[in-house]
């Protein structure tokens, strides 16, 4: 029973109650992924599984056998920040930094959803070929990631800039 975390195969816990979040934080000391509610309401624990964003607090680790998980620690490569991480710094897209790993992973997954043409609650044309990432589209899609410091404007600037440079 193994799971791939940031490129490294890792044993799954024998206790089936262990959430993916607690596996990361408590068992592997990968504390970049944050716990803010443990019930899927805040988004701080967002990670990418095979490129799709999920809430790791609502996921049992054993469900993810054989899957590839990317956490915030896995976004940067060879010690170089991911361009979205740098954009968050440049646009002050955080204050305390606690929701930031979730915002980052969520944004990476969200942009893939947009590219795949998945509609959101504010998408007007459900049959359109592609989604235009308007401010409303971005905000609607990121609304599962709470930021109590209120760095939302900076986060939106950072994601918008990153999305434009990677079009």
């Amino acid at each position: 029973m193994s799971i791939n975390i940031n490129g490294s195969p890792t044993n799954l816990p024998s206790d089936t109650r262990v959430s993916l979040l607690d596996l990361l934080r408590d068992h592997l000391n990968l504390s970049g992924t944050k716990k803010g509610c443990n019930q899927g309401a805040c988004g701080a624990c967002t990670v990418l599984v095979d490129g799709e964003r999920i809430l790791s607090c609502l996921a049992l680790a054993v469900q993810y056998e054989g899957r590839s998980v990317t956490t915030v620690e896995g976004l940067s490569t060879n010690g170089l920040l991911h361009p979205l991480q740098q954009a968050f710094i440049d646009h002050d897209g955080f204050q305390c930094g606690y929701c930031t790993p979730g915002q980052l992973c969520s944004a990476v997954g969200m942009l893939r959803e947009v590219r795949r043409g998945l509609p959101s609650n504010v998408t007007n044309d459900l049959e359109g070929e592609s989604i235009t990432l308007t401010r409303d589209e971005l905000c609607e899609r990121m609304s599962g990631n709470l930021c109590r410091c209120g760095a939302y404007n900076g986060i939106v600037y950072a994601i918008t800039e990153f999305a434009e440079t990677t079009k």
């Binding site: 504390s31 944050k34 716990k35 976004l75 920040l81 955080f94 930094g97 930031t100």
Partner: peptide, 21 residues
């Protein structure tokens, strides 16, 4: 001036209270 602790916060290496083994 950008936050000096920015790189730690965006890379998940900033350690919060419950993250000290």
């Amino acid at each position: 001036v950008s936050r000096l602790d920015g790189p730690q916060k965006v890379s998940g290496t900033a350690r919060f209270a419950a993250e000290f083994p």
